[in-house]
Write a protein that binds this DNA or RNA. Sequence first.
DNA 1: AATGAATGAGTTTTCATTCAT
DNA 2: GATGAATGAAAACTCATTCAT
Lengths: 216, 216, 216, 216
Amino acid sequence: MKKREVHASVKDEKLVSMRRNQMIKGAVNLFKEKGFHRTTTREIAKAAGFSIGTLYEYIRTKEDVLYLVCDFIYDEVKDRLQNDLEQNSGTPEALKTTIAYFFQVMDDMQDEVLVMYQEVKSLTKDALPYVLKKEMEMVHMFELVITRCVENGKLNISEKHIRLLAHNIFVQGQMWGFRRWALRKIYTLEEYIELQSDLLLGSLYGKGNLNATSLP
Amino acid sequence: MKKREVHASVKDEKLVSMRRNQMIKGAVNLFKEKGFHRTTTREIAKAAGFSIGTLYEYIRTKEDVLYLVCDFIYDEVKDRLQNDLEQNSGTPEALKTTIAYFFQVMDDMQDEVLVMYQEVKSLTKDALPYVLKKEMEMVHMFELVITRCVENGKLNISEKHIRLLAHNIFVQGQMWGFRRWALRKIYTLEEYIELQSDLLLGSLYGKGNLNATSLP
Amino acid sequence: MKKREVHASVKDEKLVSMRRNQMIKGAVNLFKEKGFHRTTTREIAKAAGFSIGTLYEYIRTKEDVLYLVCDFIYDEVKDRLQNDLEQNSGTPEALKTTIAYFFQVMDDMQDEVLVMYQEVKSLTKDALPYVLKKEMEMVHMFELVITRCVENGKLNISEKHIRLLAHNIFVQGQMWGFRRWALRKIYTLEEYIELQSDLLLGSLYGKGNLNATSLP
Amino acid sequence: MKKREVHASVKDEKLVSMRRNQMIKGAVNLFKEKGFHRTTTREIAKAAGFSIGTLYEYIRTKEDVLYLVCDFIYDEVKDRLQNDLEQNSGTPEALKTTIAYFFQVMDDMQDEVLVMYQEVKSLTKDALPYVLKKEMEMVHMFELVITRCVENGKLNISEKHIRLLAHNIFVQGQMWGFRRWALRKIYTLEEYIELQSDLLLGSLYGKGNLNATSLP
DNA sequence: AATGAATGAGTTTTCATTCAT
DNA sequence: GATGAATGAAAACTCATTCAT
């Protein structure tokens, strides 16, 4: 699936790319504060540092901004994740590291994740599949890491369990962002990583020895 | 925390309650399809079966409708959950039953859950706490069930693990609603319940024997 | 010119009269505070002590209330004035007394006068003449008193001066009501009466001796 | 007291000024015919010659239009008055000229005066003081002219009389506008000026010789 | 390529008036 | 005669989008 094209009147690709970055940066902040619907195109233009007329030289509709933002965020997350996975060795320890890394990324990109998570549903039927596709690719990455563990004989678990586990990891990562109002009161990021790893991996390795002592 | 009052011009309480139910029912459908922001008050009135003027006899602002909808859904879910938990025996089997029951409720109320999940963030700072409070109460119910297992000596697990586990259960319930686009393609509800139980409980009881054979 | 009829569904004249008095009393207060346009019929009904449905048993349109209020106020002022004038002796002293009395009435009925003064223009073309007619009748009363002075030989002044003088007296009476924001800061009612009398009568009797010493 | 700022989205000051003049011109006509409350913003926009959207580029609320109108009218009257007063010599003849001039202005600006006079009370608590301030300044101008006469020894009259006289002059000017329905039937502007001058100045100079023969 | 003034369809909300009970 | 729920036309205001400069 190719990237969905967003039409620009301006031809200079470099310029288009630059302007869109300004746009995305400004929009993320606004969406974070007021949501997509309560943000006006004028505000986006202003936050991006140019006029409303100029904004419309680089997009066709307000929705395009949302798509661009979502697309950008997913790319960012995916890129970071990919870097990590390329050197993954397929051991349970590596899986744990991957989880920790992913949660860390979600923490770093808190605002972006929150925006994306809350506003994807505002995308048109038209744009949504492109974004969901990307999400599936990321879930798939986790599946691969887990599968590698299985292939290494370190883990005995069904295909369906693998896929669900991958979804769980992904959602728990997002969860750290979208449930901060609750989780932050109880856990630090480090604790959250540790505890979720316990629960995720405990189920796989049958330790059954979860207890408070495993925490600092 | 008392319920947040939504002002009605009409005095007859019975009538208010009836009209609001019509309203909620209509609104849920619309919100599900187009989201809160893209739904107009006129559409809500029409879907509820009365005129725009009448709508405003029962609410003050469009936001009130959203609050009423969210409040109703949480109450519904909570009520159903409460019924189940009252007769919960505090054994691991009972915990599994509770999870299954909760996931079933989330499946029954799919549309409502989706709406709530996507639109809570559109509530004003004013109304949000009332809804989040309710969410926390539900999470707390799960904590209680798990704690009862621990107290029964059937389970050895830290306080912090308990709370996180409760959150996970809650989110995994919602997940069945808001990620249907992905999960439905792979699992039936029964499978989803079974697999998630495996993962959740496996971590607690150290079976470590997860495999495809445990599935039909 | 007969009184303009305001239609009532209710037949019992006594009741109609009673209900309308309640209505007028309530409405004057509301109009005073928020003006005719910003006052709703519901508020009028409530202030009158009955329901919106009942209100409409005694009037046909919101405008009727305004007309009723204006009509009532003019009648009140006119009645009071008439009482005084019947015993007027036609001397310059009597004229001064009349002025003092009129200003006193305008002070007593401050709120009503303000309302009337500000809202007459909101009457329909249809109702306005009835009210203006009444105003002219009051101006005419002043003309009569002045004319009597002339006929008594106490005063030598043209017909046109008389009529203008009458208008001036009337407007200066109203002025005490509608310019309170300015006049109250400088004068007490007594001072205002005294000073205006000086200016009005000075012109007629050629005293030319206005000075601060004539004031306490 | 600085001018109360009315916010405009458009930056070009020249344009703002031009558009607002169109707006004021259109609004005065509408307000004159139907009053502020019965005039819609769409009508104002149309009368001004642009769209409703454009109207709101130059104001924030409908009330702003009223303020702009009132402010404009007061400025206009005040400016004209100021021009006359600068060359005022402080003699009774000059005072008479000033009065004649002021009444003439009020006649020229009949419509505007009527609007202002009837609608000031519709201004918010917020804007009212700015307008009343201007009114007081105008009254003060008259005080100055009268005071100059006193200082020249041409007139012996108390401070309080001066202030009241100034108010009377101002109100009688307005009166020519807001009581035209009655006064126009009896007097031409010239007569009105002549007669009011007789009454105003007669009181000051003790001629006491008012009679019909002084009129043409 | 950039600007920002102009547009008007569309939105929420109000409120005078009616009419069944 | 009294009530108050229902109605819907109309109002103020917003904002995505266009286009002349």
